[in-house]
Amino acid sequence: MKRTLGYAVIAILFFALIWVWTLEVDSSLNYPEFISGGALFFTIFFLCLFNIRKRVPFLPLWPARKWFLLHTVAGFLALSLFWLHAGIMWPNGLYVQILVFLFYLTTLSGIVGLVMEKVYPNLLTRIGLECIYERIPRDIAEIRNKAETLVFECTEKTGSDTLAQHYLETLGWFFQRPRFFINNIFGGQNAQTWVMQQCSILERFLNASERDYLDKIFALAEIKRKIDFHYSLQTMLKNWLLIHIPLAAAVMTMVVWHIIVIQVFFN
C-alpha cells in the first residue's frame, strides 16, 4: 500500500510537471501538444514495456511487482495525460477518434482487470480449494467418472434406477462441464443452490442405501461446484488480457502512425 502510494505520488508529480510545462509552453505560444504528447507517448510506451518485461524474466530489470505497480499507476497517468494532451474527452477526426476509442477501451479493460485481480483472489481463497487452471478438464472428467461409477454401482447394488434416472435427466448436465459461469463471476450462489435443490428433491424417493450414494454424489458435486468457481474466476482473470493486450497493441500501432503523421505534417 505504501509503495503504491509512493508511486502514485511520483506519477502525480510527473503529471504536475508536465502540466506546468505545457502551461509554460502554451503561454510562450509554442506547442504544448508536443510536451504532453511526448509524455503521453513515453507513458504508453512504458505501459507496453510491461509486456516485454514479462517475456524476459531473467533480466535484472526490477522485480515484476514494482513493474505491476508502476503499470497500474502509469495507466491512470496515461489517461490523465491524454486529457491534458487532447484537452477534450472526445476528439474530432476519424483517425484520432478510433485511436481514442481504442485507448479508452484499453484503459477500461485495464481497470476492470485490476478490479478483478484485487477481488477475485479473495473469493478463490474463500472457496477452500485450489486447482490449477490447466488441470480443470482432467479434474472435472475425473469427478464425472466417479459420479457415473457411483450411479452405476447404485443401480447395480440397489436394483433401483431412481438415482440413475435423475442423474441422466438432471444431474448429468451439471457434471458435463463447468456450469454457472456468469453467476460465478459475480460471486453468486446459484450453483450451490442448484446442487442442493437437485439433491434434496430426490431424497424422498430413495431408500437408505440409495441415499448413501446420493450423499457421495452430493459430495462430488460440491467439489465440482468449487472447481467450477475456480474455472469461472480464473477464466476471467486470464481472459481479460485477451481484450487488453490486443487493444494495447492496436493503440500502440496507431500511436506510432499518429506520431509519423505529426512529424510529416507538423514538425
Binding site: P121, N122, L124, T125, Q234
Partner: peptide, 18 residues
C-alpha cells in the same frame, strides 16, 4: 499469499524461461 495471487502463472513461466 493466495489473497494476492491471481493465478497468472507468471512465476511458472518465469521459471520455465530460466
Amino acid at each position: 499469499n493466495l489473497d494476492r495471487c491471481v493465478r497468472c502463472d507468471d512465476c511458472v513461466r518465469a521459471c520455465a524461461s530460466t
